[in-house]
């Protein structure tokens, strides 16, 4: 499967993750977002940049916990109040924020939780 960005064909897998992570550019992420029906605005792009920086530093994508703590930590005093920021993330990316952001930032696909039950 491939999508066309600026006249160049970019290889992606079934779910939309980049096959070659070197292919990433802002236009590519916009094209993938368009494929998933998301219009990229400033909030989205800021989060994508954060994901790329974080991955470069830690070699692992940020978890929801990290996002809520680092970016939403200023909201409220109690642990319970941080949850508001998560709601905001789900508003931006309704299906699955972490997986969607990894996709748009050109990071590897996050592994599903081993023990669901």
């Amino acid at each position: 499967m491939a999508i066309e960005v600026n006249g160049k064909m970019i290889e992606i897998d079934e779910e939309g993750f980049l096959v070659d992570r070197e292919d990433w550019s802002e236009d590519v992420s916009e094209a993938i977002a368009g494929r998933d029906g998301i219009e990229l605005k400033d909030e989205h792009i800021g989060l994508i940049d954060y994901f790329r920086d974080y991955y470069e530093e830690h070699q692992v994508h940020p978890t929801m916990r990290v996002l809520v703590l680092r970016l939403g930590g200023k909201i409220g005093k109690k642990f319970h109040d941080h949850k508001e920021y998560e709601k905001f993330l789900y508003m931006l990316f309704p299906s699955d924020p972490i997986s969607e952001l990894c996709k748009l930032a050109g990071l590897p696909k996050p592994l599903p939780s081993e023990h669901d039950g």
Partner: peptide
């Protein structure tokens, strides 16, 4: 085999 599927706005609830 497992995979991930989410209802819009939910992170859990579907296995």
């Amino acid at each position: 085999t497992g995979t991930v599927l989410n209802v819009s706005g939910y992170g859990g609830g579907v296995i």
